[in-house]
Structure formats: C-alpha cells, structure tokens
Design a protein around this nucleic acid. Sequence first.
DNA 1: TTGAAAGCGCTAACAC
DNA 2: GTGTTAGCGCTTTCAA
Lengths: 329, 329
Amino acid sequence: MTVTIYDVAREAKVSMATVSRVVNGNPNVKPTTRDKVNEVIKRLNYRPNAVARGLASKKTTTVGVIIPDISNVYYSELARGLEDIATMYKYHTIISNSDNDSDKEQEIFNNLLSKQVDGIIFLGGTLKDETVELIEKSSVPVVVSGTNDRESKLASVNINYTEASKEIAETLIDNGAKKFAFVGGGYSEKAQDDAFKGLEEALSNAGLKMNNDAKFVGNETYKDGSNAYDAVSKINPDVILCISDEQAIGIVHAAQDAGVKIPEELQVVSFNNTRLVHMVRPQLSSVTQPLYDIGAVGMRLLTKYMNDEKIDEPNVILPYRVEYRGTTK
Amino acid sequence: MTVTIYDVAREAKVSMATVSRVVNGNPNVKPTTRDKVNEVIKRLNYRPNAVARGLASKKTTTVGVIIPDISNVYYSELARGLEDIATMYKYHTIISNSDNDSDKEQEIFNNLLSKQVDGIIFLGGTLKDETVELIEKSSVPVVVSGTNDRESKLASVNINYTEASKEIAETLIDNGAKKFAFVGGGYSEKAQDDAFKGLEEALSNAGLKMNNDAKFVGNETYKDGSNAYDAVSKINPDVILCISDEQAIGIVHAAQDAGVKIPEELQVVSFNNTRLVHMVRPQLSSVTQPLYDIGAVGMRLLTKYMNDEKIDEPNVILPYRVEYRGTTK
DNA sequence: TTGAAAGCGCTAACAC
DNA sequence: GTGTTAGCGCTTTCAA
C-alpha cells in the first residue's frame, strides 16, 4: 500500500541503510548509488514516514507552542514570527491555546512531551509558579517569548516594560500631565508589574504620586475598556497607560462616548502595538514592540538550545520605540 | 532513562499488553489489575510515547492546518474555533502558514502527510487547481473551512456570500443607493466571486448596472484600503462593498481623509466580521459571519471523516446576518 | 562505501 | 482476563 524505505531499497538493489543515508543527505554514498536511489524514490513517490523516523532517532522536528489565545491579535502576531523561523529551521509547530489557565497549561505541556516535541515555546501569558516549576524540570528546552517569570530564571525574549513605561510617563509629565491612571490586563502579570513600576518611578522622580483608585486590572478585551474607563475616570486622569491595545481602544471610545475629548482632555497610551493601533482614529499612541521579532527570536533561541549551540544570553531584551500618535498631545 | 510501558509492566508484574489496555481504557481488565497498574503508572510517572503509539497504531491524533496567515484576524478567529474542537476530540493541530501561495500549500501538504496526520483542514484562501487536485487524491480526509473550490467538490464549511451580498445590495438600493463599487482581496477568490455575483444580481434586478471601473482587487490589508479607495472613488460610488474588514476600514479612513462624510456621502459594508468591526468609529456595517463556528464546524466535520461517521452533508452552509452599523445610513 | 541487524516504544492479533 | 509475539518504518551502530 504505502511505499516504505524497504520498497525503495529492494527496487534500487541496495540496503535500507543506504536509502536512509541518501534521504538524510549523508555524504558517504557513492554518487552513482545516490542517483539510482533518488531515481527510485521519485519513481515510487516515496515519502519518509516522520513518525517512524521520530521513534528511531528520538527527534521529531516538532516544537510545541503554548499560547493564551491565538485569536488575540497580539499573540497571533507573535505566533506568525515564531512560525516563520520554525519553518526556516524545518520544524513544525503544534499550537495549543491555554486561555492563560494554569491547569490547561500543565495539561498541554504534558501532552506536548508525550508527543515527543524537541522543544517548547511558551508565548505571552502570566507564568504561574506551577508552570515555572514544570518548565524548570522539563526534559526538553523551553523558551518563553513575550513574557517572563518574575525572577527571569527562564530563557526568554522580551522588551523592557519598565523603561518604556518610565519614558512615556516622563515625556508626558514634561508635557504637563500630572494625574496618571494605569490599566493592566490578565495575560502577562510580569509585563504589567514592570510597566507599573516604571510609571511609579517616573512619578516619584517628578514628586508626583498616584491615587489609589488609579489602577485597574481587567481582561485585555475591547469590551473591558469601558469598565476600565468607568473605574479610573473617577480620579479624572490626564493620562491612562494601558497594557493592551484592544482595551485601550475600548477606553478611548468609552471616553469619547462620555464626551471627553481625546487627546485634549485625556491621553491614552498602550503597550501592545498590534496592527490595531493604526486602524482607529485617533490613532493610538503606543510602545512599538517588535511583535513578530519577539516570536521569531524566541524560536531562534529555542533552535539553539535544541541543537546544543552556544547561548550568549538566555534573557534577550529587544529594543522598543514609543510612538506618539493621535491619542497624545 | 525515560519510563516505558515495559518498565510499568515489570513493576506491576503484568504484561505490556495489560498496561496498554489500561492506558487505552480497554474494559477487558480486572479492576484490581487496573488499579495496580494505575498505581505503578503514577508512581513511575509514566507518560505514553505518542510517537511509538502512532507508529504501531497508524493513528497520530494530529491534524494538519493550512492557513494563509495566522496573524490575520479573520483567520486567527477561524483557527481558534477549530482548535477548541480539536482539543475536545483529543486531537493536536500542526499549523502552517501558506501566504496563499500554491507552492507552499503543496509543500506543507506533503510535509503534513509525511508527519502522518490523521486529517487536514484547509482554512480560507483561494483554492488553486493544483491544490484542489492534491486534496482530491489525498490519502487522509481533508475539509476546507471558510472557502471552497469553484465546483464545491470538496467537503467544506462556508456561508453563502452570494445571498449575503445580494441582500445588502437590495437593502441599500431600496434605500436610495445607485452606484456600487466592489473591492475584493487576494485570499479567497471563491468568496469574492460569489459576493460579486450577488451584487450583480441585485443590480440587474433593479435595472442598474455597474461601471467597469467599479471593481478593485487588492490584498486585504488596511494599507491597501487607500489604494482601493483611490481606484473606485473615481466613479463616485454611493456604496463600497468590501470583502475584508481591514481593507474596508482602510477605505473608510481614506475617504474621511479626503473629506468624504461616512455614511452620508459614502456607505461601506464588509464581509469578514472580525472583532475589528466594533473597534472603529463609525462602526463598520458588515455581514456577521460565525467565524469561530466556521472553524469549529469544519473541525467537527473532519472528525466525522476521520472516524468514519456518517456524513449528512459534505458542504455545510452556515447562517449569516447583515448588521447595519455606522458606515451605512 | 555498503550491508546486516538490533532496536525505538507501542499496538493488535492470537492464544491461552 | 491476560500474556506472547510480531510487527509499525525508520536510524544507527558495527562489521565488512
């Protein structure tokens, strides 16, 4: 029925070992033999069985990807970057959605190991202790992209949220802003905490301080933007810093619906930099993160671990820029 | 090193076959034996090797997904639906991006087959003849979701673009619109052609006809929206029908930048219904496709094929609604 | 440069 | 209800 390596060997009058060598590009094959084998492979339309190969070689050329939600623009852009590099290095990716749920993460993790993946990428999301523990004692390399554990013990790719947040706050303070509000989402607590820290530093340096009611933690959705706005608008902020683009857009619209002029009466800056920032009017001021690259570099880092290459730096920090668009003065 | 079924068998003083039965939930095992085996499995932290299982059983519980671009909101929403159903049925998904490129599609297809996937889902995208041919002679079941071949030979899940388009055109004609423009994208030619057909029918029924310059085919991106607007604005249309949300939003903004009032002077309706439609102001009038369901139902259909269940109807047409929001009068 | 043969870890008859 | 055994299709020593 299906053509196996044995059929090719018989037809080409060589051993299975030789066919295997040809298929795997082993140089120790006489050119004439190689040609003969290749001819038969083509004629019989032989396609190596990756499962059998995986069993024999203990390598599946497959990596697992654990992602909170592939339909979230932020994550799907990371995923695309990762995918492209995986393809470049001849890896396939098994993607599973965790909804940032720790139990699901662990289940997925174990499933991926049972599938014998060569490595795992953990995209975004909050890294709860149990998950970090699982990663630390993993039998295959793991890289986290677009997030990190609190102590940065894991191999990771990220931007410096603290610095970005601080820079934004300083700029806007220089520009006259005094009252800041902060809206975090549920997915990456590390990013949120780091960004909040940067904001606090900038405020403290300027002799300002934040109102206790000025922080809201929501769920990073457009709809939740109006909840966020309702919550923080009580303190009448000059600026709202918001982790998620979708939520920031929700905030902008909620404010506008309430008759607040943006950016004149309220400025909004977000951190995700998905393609959405350009698709709304006024265009959303944001930290421009290299999303595609965060995924791509994470995957590249993982390939290094999988091939036992030298790792210069397990915690990669990628550059960012702040772009002031329509939602800031 | 790693724990195998053999280790468990030895430790539990039973045969491998019995362990296999327990692991696979085969009822022909005495409860006491089952308990004993389960205890050992837990104690040794045994995790079945899915690769070995795949080789022996010729089933990998893995499906391949070929998608034009996971970072495109439309496709990532389909992907999420599909993923959830796959997980529900204990399948994993290997996702690969094709960029709607026929060569890549074929390469991915063959790679997936070599990975011994149990089935393949083809998401969105134009089905070129070579791809259709590949699918037709595939050794594993294939379902196409969110697109179809021109003759509907393949198992598929879709909405009726012709009907939707016709309905919109009729409604807007009743409402006074006379000059229509149409903007298609690169990804799904079938959808585009069907939608165009519906528009033509409605126009013809109303004794109207379309200007030759009123059709533009672009690439479904936000940026391309301004190209599309430049192209079709020459005929001064009352209405632009646009397949892609992103592109439609680009059109709206290009028009607004040119001083055109929306919806008073120009109405815009799109077909994709991604979450973007709510995130712009004015909110985009659109066909509300059940994106998540198109993916989910496609996956469910595929599981039926993979398990040799009875198929009632290989071409599933899902219901749609038209929602008139801010970009129509 | 090539071949023989022993697994990789599991499932699935088949026999008991 | 349980065990024996022959593969699944390939890679990888080891020897020649």
